[in-house]
Design a protein around this nucleic acid. Structure first.
Lengths: 162, 162
DNA sequence: TGGTTTTCGGATACGATATATCCTTAATTC
DNA sequence: GAATTAAGGATATATCGTATCCGAAAACCA
């Protein structure tokens, strides 16, 4: 059970976009260069964010991506689900149905007890991610990343932001 | 991020083994038949449980599997990790290192803030599974499964248990 | 107007991993 | 000695993640 690498990419890209001044856009090219990622493939992750309405885009030179909402109003789960999908990690294939002792056509009222427990764990995972805002990440990064690197990074970004 | 179907199989198999009388074993063949699963492949899942010391085995006719510990002393996480592995669902590939603004050879003291949050969610998932005992599952099943099916299933099982 | 840059979506290829089967070996039972 | 079982290796197939390429449409600029 491994998350796509695009999840990591999307989270880091959103953290960068969160530091972008109002009204400006950052291109896939810049984001790929900044993180050392394949531009074409990173593009797919950004498209997922766009389809989830987490980011807005504009075309042409000086085009690119910006957040659609304030970092305070975006949580981790939204970003993760945008690229990873909303499907639960555990899928119940109802193998109880194959029990030769069950009358044919017997239908359970409740979902399988095993599935309910696995889904509960899944929900705990989602809850944790839902509770973390993008602004929390930015806050942590701005504290932990050395000030000079933090500053020069955003100078680098602004030089490329349309 | 999808769990292997073997996780579902292992959990259901453990629930059956939990109902086995002291000192008796149930074969892969019986477990596969009971759940409508491919015997050869289910065998791999059971081998994983065996390697994790969750079940004990014996060879020959009347051989098979039985729980190595009481259902009260086995939790969901142990079973899930036995077949799925203990690796975290999020792996940090340190794409921050590729930031062209970072001095070469710069080494972070802490793991990436993004990774820490994702790992926290992972831990919440594991915590939930750790808190559920196999005996809890058996308790729920014995309440929810219609009494006649429950009984005939274990008659079926005992007829095949060595 | 025309050329450049951008996002977007489709098509395609490659690799890793989950799924599944087969076979051999060794241990156990009868 | 014959039958049955778990264990583990080898192999095949399918699915999915990873990655690249291309064309279309939109936006910017000279």
């Amino acid at each position: 059970m491994i998350l796509k690498s695009q999840v990591e990419w999307a989270l880091h890209c959103c953290a960068i976009l969160a530091g972008l001044p109002e009204g400006r856009y950052l291109s896939t090219k810049a984001l790929a260069e900044l993180h050392g990622l394949p531009k074409e493939y990173l593009s797919k992750a950004l498209q997922s964010l766009s389809q989830a309405s987490l980011v807005e885009t504009t075309l042409g030179p000086s085009g690119g991506y910006r957040l659609a909402r304030a970092p305070l109003d975006i949580n981790f789960l939204e970003i993760v689900e945008a690229v990873e999908g909303k499907a639960r990690s555990f899928t119940c294939t109802n193998i109880r149905e194959n029990n030769p002792c069950r009358p044919a056509g017997y239908c359970d009222s409740k979902p399988c007890a095993v599935a309910r427990i696995m889904w509960e764990a899944d929900e705990a995972w989602r809850d944790t991610l839902r509770r973390v805002r993008l602004s929390d990440l930015v806050g942590t990064l701005s504290e932990e990343v050395p000030a000079d690197i933090w500053r020069s990074t955003f100078e680098w970004v602004l030089k490329r932001a349309g």
